[in-house]
Every structure is written in structure tokens, then in C-alpha cells.
Design a protein around this nucleic acid. Structure first.
Lengths: 199, 199
DNA sequence: TGCATTTTGGTTCGACCGTTCTAGAATGCG
DNA sequence: CGCATTCTAGAACGGTCGAACCAAAATGCA
């Protein structure tokens, strides 16, 4: 056997994700990563490959840790409430964000994905995962009568995904509570409406 | 007097904006800019200052040329139609975008603005300008009865701004017509709804 | 015509980039 | 105990970065 590692992989990925999250991909140097993760360059390259590969692993780690986790928590709630709680969490996260880092996945969607076909597919798949959560939740809400049937679950899921992206972008430049609430409120109000045919 | 310039300022700003738009701020080198603009480094620094200053001027140029121009055109239309046409243009721009560059202002909001307080204020002001267009148009539509009064013009304007950001982000990673239409449709449908009290 | 002024085309600068390499330290197994 | 293996620490690599510098060229005015 050989000498054991002196670092914890998850801890390093946390720190690396923090760097990329704060500064973006291009503006983060390998030396930044070395300093913030606390491990040396050789260890970093040995364990995670080059900068690009590390980025993808850090993004995976982030998504699993924060987004997938939030989805899992919300899936336990009644449908209409699940969507409400989801956006409440997004709102409070966006407002308490001293560095204005936003969501690392949304940042990746604009910063890195368009220049890297592999990563574009990864990010697209992650966004589809969020969209699917919305769609399925809307379907459940339509089934139990708590969400309108005036639009299809597919369309509403797509709309909610778009609104989520919009909130995350605006929050980085104009983190004003009233603005973000104004973006979200109509989307939630729309869910509650009765179909026109029942009016 | 002195030797006259051999380049056209607007043409250079167009080319520079194209570079930053395609590659982002950090990934664009001054050598890229020199090549694409066709002028030399000395001319570039003399006429536009450093890279950061050039970026801001290029962004200004872009916004005035494409966003402000679109707003001016839409302002001539009846309110409800103005918003519909606005999003139709966004949709077709987003779908015909071989490089997936999206909107340079939205890119700036995530790529550059969070790391540069001055630029953050500039971008925030530009976004407010779009929001104001939406709000005023909704107000006019509410006045002539073509847009619902079930939500305030302020809230609807904020929502439309958020949806616009969302479309622009999604289009860069998942430029699918059905998805983008699904994001937009509920927002437009919401405008047409009658207030619940009239149902 | 010549002088002051500005632009132009390259070159050059020190700094930093991502990555690799060289040593040596630390482990489990035979 | 020693050997193969994998770790750590840090120096070093070629390359590129943003920016500054330098003559030479080109103008309008005296």
C-alpha cells in the first residue's frame, strides 16, 4: 500500500466550488484553488485532474449538495406548498448573499457551458432535473385540485424554471426584496387561478 | 492639428462588443480585440483606455444599439401588442443564435457586474430601464383595458423583467423553441386574465 | 515649409497563467 | 525491516496576459 491522503475529498470540492462560485471559471487561478483548498498543486492534479475537470466535479458536488437537496426536501411537501417553499428559499438565499454569488449552476450556464459542449450537456441535464421537479409537482397539484388546469403542467413547469433563472440573475445585480418578490408573485398567483371555463 | 484617426469609433466598438459578447470578459484577451477590431494596441489604449474601460464602452454601445432600439420600436405599438412583439423578437433572436451568445447585457450581469461595483450600477440602471418600459406599457394597457388589473403594473413589470432574464439564460444552454415558448406563454396569458372579482 | 501634435505599427515588459517535474516523506505488505 | 507505492512540498516550465514604450508617419497651422 501507499501513503494515505491527508485531505478530505468533499472538503476540497467544497472549497474549490466556493472559488469558482465567487470568481467564475476564468477568473479563478489554480493558485487561488491551491490556497483556498489547502492542498498543493500536485495533490490537486493527482486527485482531480486539470482545472476544467476539477470545475466539473466541484459543480457536481455543489448541485448535489444544494439543489438536489432542496428538491428532495420540497418533494415531501404538498404540491402547491412545495413550489411556494422552493421559491421562498430561493428568495431568502438570494437576499442573504453578501458576495452576490447567486447560484453556481446559473453562473455556469452563462459563464462556462456555452464554450464547452460537454459541460453544456451537463448543465442542461441539471436544468432539466429542476424543470422535471416543477412539472411533476404541478401535475400532482393539478391532480389534487390545488393548482390550476388552465395551463398544462409542462408549460407551467417551463415557466417556473424560467422565473427561477430570472430571479437568480437579477439578484446578483439588483438584490432588492421588492423586485424579486414582484418577479415571483405573478408566477405563484398564476398557479392558484381557476381555469377560465370555470369562471 | 494632428494626424487623423484611421478607424471609425463605432465600428471598433461593434467589433469589441462582439468579442466580449462571444467569449466573456475574462476569456477575451487584448490581443483578440486587436485582431478583431483591426486596430493596433496603442490606438486601442489611446482611444478607449484599458480593457475594463473598453468593455464598458462596448457594452454601452451594444445596449444603445440593440436593447434601447428595441424598446423604442415597441413603444410605438399598442401596449398589449408591444409586450407580445418584444418577446417574439427575443424568442427569434434566442433561437437564431448559432454561437449561443445570448444577450450581452445579461451576460454582463453575471460575468462582470458582481465583481465591479461601478459596472454593477451601470448594469442595474440598464435593467431598470427595461423594467420601466414594461411597467409603463402595462400601465398604458391597464388604462385602455387590454391588460388585467388583477396585479399592479409594478409587479407585472418586475415579473416580465424576470421572465426576460430567464429566457435569455435558458436559451444559451437549452435553445429549444418549445421550452422558451413555455417560459413566456404563462406570463403573456397572465396579462390577458380578467381580475378574479369580475369572474 | 517646418513645427506641434496625435496616430500607428511593433516591440518589450514584468507578472501571472495552467501544468509538470523533482525530491522527499509516509504508509502497508512481504 | 525494506521495498513498492502514493502522497506532499515547492520549484520550474513555456506560454500568454494586460499594459507601456518607442520611433516613424501623418496631419493643420504658423
Amino acid at each position: 500500500m501507499a501513503r494515505p491522503r491527508e485531505f478530505d475529498e468533499a472538503t476540497v470540492l467544497d472549497a474549490a466550488a466556493g472559488c469558482f462560485w465567487s470568481r467564475g471559471y476564468e477568473a479563478t487561478s489554480v493558485r487561488d484553488l491551491i490556497e483556498k483548498t489547502g492542498i498543493t498543486g500536485a495533490s490537486l492534479y493527482n486527485a482531480f485532474g486539470d482545472k476544467r475537470t476539477l470545475y466539473q466535479k466541484a459543480l457536481d458536488h455543489y448541485v448535489e449538495d444544494s439543489i438536489a437537496n432542496r428538491i428532495r426536501r420540497c418533494e415531501q411537501l404538498p404540491p402547491r406548498r412545495a413550489i411556494g417553499v422552493f421559491f421562498e428559499e430561493i428568495l431568502s438565499r438570494s437576499l442573504y448573499d453578501p458576495e452576490h454569488r447567486g447560484c453556481m449552476l446559473v453562473n455556469a450556464a452563462l459563464d462556462v457551458a456555452p464554450h464547452d459542449p460537454d459541460l453544456q450537456q451537463v448543465v442542461a441535464a441539471m436544468l432539466t432535473r429542476i424543470e422535471t421537479f416543477f412539472r411533476r409537482t404541478v401535475e400532482a397539484g393539478q391532480a389534487d385540485g390545488t393548482i390550476t388546469r388552465s395551463l398544462t403542467a409542462e408549460t407551467l413547469g417551463q415557466h417556473l424554471l424560467g422565473v427561477l433563472m430570472g430571479v437568480r440573475v437579477l439578484a446578483r445585480v439588483r438584490p432588492e426584496k421588492a423586485l424579486l418578490e414582484g418577479v415571483i408573485a405573478p408566477a405563484l398567483a398564476l398557479l392558484d387561478r381557476r381555469p377560465a371555463s370555470e369562471a
